[in-house]
Design a protein around this nucleic acid. Structure first.
Lengths: 345, 345
DNA sequence: CTGAAAGCGCTAACAA
DNA sequence: TTGTTAGCGCTTTCAG
C-alpha cells in the first residue's frame, strides 16, 4: 500500500519538500514554472496528501463524528442522510457510530472519535444516558458539539429538535376528536428530553379537552423499544387494566411497531378497539395494516441544520456568543389506524 | 482540546520519552519500579495514546471501512450490526460509508478510507458499479478486501453471500405451488451478482415446473429501487401487459415496498389478484397489509462472517492461499401475501 | 535498564 | 523564489 509522498516528488524533481508543498498549495511565492512542473507531476503520479499526517500536524481532521442510538431506524438514517448531504458539500467527512441505547457505548464512541481528532460532534443521546460528564468535559475543552432530537437540558450549545410538545398535542387532540376517551401513552425513559416534552403535550391536550390524566395510562420503556419483551410487557399491562385504553399514542418507531405486533397477535382490531398514532418516521407507514397515523419529523432537515450549526461552530468558534435551539415542526399524517368509531374491547 | 502525551509524562517524571513508551507497553527491559511509576502516573492523568500518531507511524489504524449502498435498509443495517459486534471484540473500529447506489460515491469513499489508512475494506457493491478498477488496484497493492452480498465475479478474494439461486428458486416454487401461472420478477440491474443469481433460480423453478420463461415478465430497476418513479414505471408496465402477471417476485426491500405501494394505489388485491414474495429483510413484514411472504437473509451472520474473514486476512496476510466464498442459507417465511386462490385482475 | 535520535508526511517560521 | 529545520506523538534502532 505504498503511496507517493511530497518527498518522492521533491526527489524526482530535484526540489525541496517545502517547495513542493508550497507549489501544491498554489502559494504566491513559488515560481509559476516550478508550480506547473510540480502540479503536473503530482497529477500524473496521482499524488494525494496524507490526511493522517495533516491531522497529526494540525490536530484536526475535516471530519465530524455522529453518535446516534441506532442506524436501523428510519428517523436516524434520514438524519444521517441530511447530515451527509451538507457535510460533503462543505468538505467534511462524516463518521457514524451507534450507541445502541447504551451509556457505556456512547462514552466509548465519544472517546474514540475525540482521539481520532474529529473537528466536532453531532449527538443524539442514548436512552440510558443520565450522566453527561463526557460531553461537558469536551465542551469545556473547546470541542464543538451540537445535539439533535434527544438533547440534554444541562448543556448549553446549539441544538436542533422538533416541537415535540406541539406534535404530541396534535396527535392527542386528533385522537380525542375522533372520540377516544382513554388514551394511553407508550414512551421512552422519562429522562430523555423527547419523553418529557411529548408527555407534556399529551397531558395538555387531555386537560384542554377536559379528559382526566391518569398516570397509569403512561408506560415507559426503559430501553426505548429496543428490547421487545419490555415493549410487549408494557402493552400487555395496558390491556389488563380494569379500563383498558381505546387508543395508544406511541412515542417512537420501535415502540409503535412493537405495540402493533402485540395487538395483532391478540387479535385486537385497530382502530376499532384500539386506535394508534405513532411518533414515527417509519417508511412503510401507509403499507401497514391498517395504514398508520403518524407524527412525522423532518429528519433530513434536522440533520442538515445540525451540521450547518456545527460547522459554523468549528470554523468560527469565537463568533458564537449565543447558542440557538432550532425547533422544527412535525406533521400529523392521518391514516386509518386512528379514525372511525370506537368499539368496546 | 490539549491531551496529555508521552512527552508530558516523561517531563513530569524526569524520564525520556522512550522509557515512558516502553514502560507503557510493558516492555521487559524496563525496571519494574519505573514501570509502576509510569503506569500509575499515566492512569492518573488519564493518558491515551494518540491513534493518529500511531497510524502515521505504522500505516495502519485498527479500523476497517465498510461501504454499503444504503443504511436506510434493514438488510444493510443488520449487516452493520453483525460487523460491529465482532469487530469491537477484536479491537477494531468500524467506519461506515454509503455509496447511495452511485459508482462515483463508491470510488470517493474508497479513496477516502484508504487515505485514512483503514486496515481493510468490507464492500457491498453499488447497483451502478460496473468498473472494478478501484478495488482491483487496491488488492494488488495488498489491501485486504472482503465482499459481501453484492460481490464481483472478476475479483478473487473472500466473499460472503447467500444462496441466491436457492432462495429464489424456493420463492418461485412456492408461488407456482400456490397456483400462480404468470410470475413476474422485479429486480435490480443485471450486472449485480445478486440479480443474475436470483434470476437463474427463478428461471430454473419455472422450467422445472413446466412454466414458460418470458423475458418480458422480468423488469430491471437500474437504481435498485432507490428511484421511486423508475420502480413505479416498472410495475405499471407489468400491469399493462396483455396478460398481466398473477404474482410478482421482488428482489429487494425497496423494490418490494415500492411494488406494494403501486398495487395498493391501484386497488389491486394482494394476494387475490397479484401475489407477492419479496427477497427482503424488512422488519415489519408481518405488520404489512397483507403480511408479506419473504425470503430472508441472515444479515447479521453475514456481517459477522465477513469481518472474521477480513480480520484474518489483515492479521495473517501470508497464511491465505485460497480464498473462500461462504454461502449462507436464506429462509422463506410464508405469510398471507402469497397464499390463497388467484382471481382474475 | 535508560536515553538519544530518526522517521512516519506535512507545513511554516526562518534563512538564504 | 527556494531551502533548511523543527515539530505534531509515537516507537524503535542504536548507544550507552
Amino acid at each position: 500500500m505504498e503511496t507517493i509522498t511530497i518527498k518522492d516528488i521533491a526527489k524526482a524533481l530535484g526540489l525541496s519538500t517545502s517547495t513542493v508543498s508550497r507549489a501544491l498549495r498554489n502559494s504566491y511565492e513559488i515560481n509559476p514554472e516550478t508550480k506547473k512542473l510540480v502540479m503536473e507531476y503530482a497529477e500524473r503520479m496521482n499524488y494525494r496528501p496524507n490526511p493522517i499526517a495533516l491531522s497529526l500536524r494540525d490536530s484536526k481532521s475535516k471530519s465530524i463524528g455522529v453518535i446516534i442510538p441506532e442506524i436501523a431506524n428510519h428517523f436516524f438514517s434520514q438524519l444521517i442522510n441530511g447530515i451527509e448531504s451538507i457535510a460533503y458539500n462543505l468538505g467534511y467527512h462524516v463518521v457514524i457510530f451507534q450507541s445502541h441505547e447504551s451509556y457505556e457505548r456512547e462514552v466509548a464512541n465519544t472517546n474514540y472519535l475525540v482521539s481520532r481528532k474529529v473537528d466536532g460532534l453531532l449527538i443524539s443521546l442514548s436512552s440510558l444516558t443520565t450522566n453527561l460528564f463526557h460531553f461537558q468535559d469536551l465542551m469545556e475543552r473547546g470541542l464543538p458539539i451540537v445535539f439533535l432530537d434527544r438533547v440534554p437540558n444541562a448543556i448549553e450549545t446549539h441544538k436542533v429538535v422538533v416541537d415535540n410538545f406541539a406534535g404530541s398535542y396534535e396527535a392527542t387532540e386528533h385522537l380525542i376528536k375522533s372520540g377516544r376517551k382513554r388514551i394511553a401513552h407508550l414512551t421512552s425513559p422519562i429522562y430523555l428530553s423527547i419523553t418529557t416534552e411529548r408527555l407534556a403535550g399529551y397531558k395538555q391536550a387531555l386537560e384542554d379537552y377536559g379528559l382526566p390524566f391518569d398516570e397509569s395510562y403512561v408506560k415507559y420503556c426503559y430501553h426505548g423499544g429496543k428490547v421487545a419483551t419490555e415493549n410487549e410487557a408494557a402493552v400487555q399491562e395496558m390491556l389488563e387494566m380494569p379500563e383498558p385504553p381505546d387508543a395508544i399514542f406511541t412515542a417512537s418507531d420501535r415502540l409503535t411497531t412493537g405495540c402493533m405486533s402485540v395487538l395483532q397477535k391478540k387479535n385486537i382490531k385497530i382502530p376499532q378497539q384500539i386506535a394508534i398514532v405513532g411518533f414515527t418516521n417509519i417508511s412503510v407507514a401507509e403499507l401497514l395494516n391498517p395504514p398508520l397515523t403518524a407524527v412525522v419529523q423532518p429528519a433530513m432537515e434536522m440533520g442538515q441544520q445540525a451540521v450547518e450549526l456545527l460547522i459554523r461552530l468549528i470554523e468560527h468558534p469565537q463568533k458564537t456568543d449565543v447558542f440557538e435551539t432550532r425547533s422544527l415542526k412535525t406533521s400529523l399524517i392521518i391514516r386509518e389506524s386512528s379514525v372511525g368509531k370506537a368499539e368496546a374491547l
